[in-house]
């Protein structure tokens, strides 16, 4: 990993990045630049390398080839998938958020400054009254906010989120989208992965279609097309438009219909 020039336009730039786990290639020749105030969604089928790409951006996965350049001193916050969190772990909301302050102070208890900072970030996300609650005793939206709060306590310039709306209901998804929109308006660059093409991806300003390699980049109108999606997912989809937004429909044909068509054809 090398450092970008402090005056470079990108926060992180990937050039021809390839990654592999035990000989299995999961990313091939990925070129991607993340700029300040960018809001990008990475979409693709399961096993397409979305999380690996996020981890390359985070710096926890090293590519086998290609280069990763970062702006010096770049602060990156990471919000894991809720499915990846150990919800039985004995940690309160306040303790969880304070984890972001592991470096520097060695004493176990929080300083007055830290207390104020944790209170401030929890208040910003509307969960200040939950500081003493166990993380499992929260709604889906509140749980997402706790991990966003932990990431924000590190004052990141770039926020990475792995499937922030995976397994949540519509109301929680709306909460998360509004929250991310607010954070983006405040100047934060955000890159997230999602499976949800209509509920999440179509609402984002910029998308990357990934299936081991990048198959399309641009606005939802540019990327959520039948051709790009077929190359990405290996399945035919139909695109409708509603209020200027693309809506993706499965072109699923039930098996008995297939037989009927075949008989007709015969």
């Amino acid at each position: 990993m090398t450092a970008l020039s402090p005056t470079a336009s990108a926060l992180i730039r990937l050039d021809g990045v390839s990654c592999a786990y035990g000989g299995t290639r999961v990313l091939t020749g990925v070129d991607l630049a993340v700029t300040p105030r960018q809001f990008t969604g990475i979409v693709g089928p399961s096993g397409s390398g979305k999380t690996t790409l996020l981890r390359v951006l985070l710096g926890t996965v090293r590519p086998v080839s290609g280069s990763v350049q970062r702006r010096p001193g770049l602060r990156v916050g990471y919000v894991p998938q809720v499915e990846a969190v150990d919800w039985s772990f004995p940690v309160t909301v306040g303790e969880c958020v304070l984890m972001a302050r592991t470096r520097g102070r060695r004493l176990p208890w929080r300083s007055r400054v830290e207390q104020a900072e944790v209170g401030e970030v929890l208040a910003r996300l509307g969960i200040e009254s939950l500081a003493g609650r166990h993380i499992r005793d929260l709604s889906g939206g509140q749980q997402q906010r706790v991990f966003i709060a932990r990431a924000l306590l590190g004052r990141p310039q770039l926020l990475l989120m792995d499937e922030p709306t995976s397994g949540v209901d519509v109301r929680t998804r709306h909460e998360v989208l509004h929250l991310l929109d607010d954070l983006h308006r405040d100047g934060l660059a955000i890159v997230l992965t999602t499976h949800d093409l209509n509920g999440m991806a179509a609402h984002l300003p910029h998308l990357v279609c990934l299936n081991t390699e990048v198959l399309g980049q641009g606005t939802p109108q540019e990327v959520l097309t039948a051709d790009v999606l077929e190359r990405t997912y290996g399945a035919r989809m139909e695109i409708l438009e509603h209020a200027g937004m693309p809506i993706v429909l499965d072109q699923y044909v039930p098996a008995d219909n297939v037989l009927r068509y075949r008989r007709k054809g015969a």
């Binding site: 981890r55 710096g59 894991p80 772990f89 303790e95 004493l107 176990p108």
Partner: peptide
């Protein structure tokens, strides 16, 4: 305390946090 807690709860993010 802080490093042990972070590593125990969330090793990946702990590693990414330095």
């Amino acid at each position: 305390y802080r490093q042990l807690l972070f590593t125990t709860f969330d090793p990946e993010v702990a590693e990414a946090s330095g």
